[in-house]
């Protein structure tokens, strides 16, 4: 009896998580240009694709500016309910000043999301040069 109850609880949790998972969902009508399809209430998820695309386009760095291509930095971004970037923090720096400065410049270009998410949210962004390593 107890086992059945435990299984039922686990199934319920599973159901809730699956409901929150937007990876296979269809596009939200309010999703910004470039956003991944999603109907969930998680703004971080809704704006993920837009932010990725924006930051990639804004990130300017030549491979000849850095001594190694094995570099990575991780930044936490926080947006308010209006979509304004209110805070950014380096969770991990690459150790190479020019790489980190280029990341910072790209982040600072992302001052405002195109539509208001309606609630505060944070996102972690990793910048690295994996594509250049593979060439």
């Amino acid at each position: 009896m107890q086992r059945k109850q435990e299984i039922a609880e686990v199934k319920q949790k599973l159901k809730e998580l699956l409901k929150a998972d937007t990876r296979k969902a269809t596009s939200a009508p309010t999703a910004p240009a470039g956003a991944e399809p999603g109907k969930d209430k998680d703004p971080g998820s809704t704006y993920e694709a837009y932010i990725r695309q924006f930051l990639k386009e804004a990130w300017t760095l030549s491979k000849y500016q850095v001594g190694s291509l094995n570099l990575a930095a991780e930044v936490s971004l926080t947006f308010d309910a209006h979509g304004t970037l209110t805070d950014y923090r380096f969770l991990r720096r690459s150790g190479e000043t020019r790489f980190d400065e280029s990341v910072q410049r790209a982040v600072l270009d992302l001052r405002q999301l195109p539509t208001a998410p309606g609630q505060t949210f944070s996102l972690r962004v990793t910048f690295n040069l994996k594509e250049l390593l593979e060439r």
Binding site: L17, D21, E48, K56, W59, T60, S102, V125
Partner: peptide
């Protein structure tokens, strides 16, 4: 399975950019 999904849900708000758009 639940733990895996929990990890997936937590990691969902992570973005990776693997090369500068302008080189």
């Amino acid at each position: 399975f639940v733990l895996t999904l929990c990890i997936a849900a937590e990691a969902r708000s992570q973005v990776e950019i693997s090369a500068p758009g302008r080189q």
